[in-house]
């Protein structure tokens, strides 16, 4: 991939994370729905907050839900891009 292709594909991912993610369905996902229907959803335990600086894809301290989700999305997208590239660079012979 050349620089332009990397830039454009990252821009697409960031746009999805920022502009589309606030529109995502708030319904429970397949596993959560099954857990609720079959009566084991209450077994879920939430971790202490220090382990999750951005719980539930919502940037802490931003009151606007759309923006809070959008920023969390941007942050995560950039972070996984960096980590995946970093891992690839390290294991590359």
């Amino acid at each position: 991939m050349n620089k332009k292709e990397i830039f454009l594909s990252l821009l697409l991912a960031l746009s999805l994370a920022f502009f589309v993610s606030p529109l995502a369905s708030p319904s429970p996902d397949g596993l959560e729905k099954v857990a609720a229907d079959k009566g084991f959803i209450e077994k879920e335990e939430t971790r202490p907050a220090f382990l999750s600086p951005v719980p539930s894809y919502s940037w802490p301290g931003i009151d606007n839900d759309t923006l809070a989700t959008g920023f969390a999305g941007i942050f995560g997208t950039v972070l996984v891009f960096g980590i995946a590239c970093g891992v690839a660079l390290i294991i590359k012979r």
Binding site: S9, L12, L16, S21, S25, T77, C85, A88
Partner: peptide, 20 residues
């Protein structure tokens, strides 16, 4: 290398987009 980064970015973003 960049393809691994781009795929991670795209899949992370796409995983936020729950469809009904």
């Amino acid at each position: 290398v960049p393809l691994m980064g781009v795929m991670a970015a795209f899949i992370f973003a796409a995983q936020m987009l729950n469809f009904p």
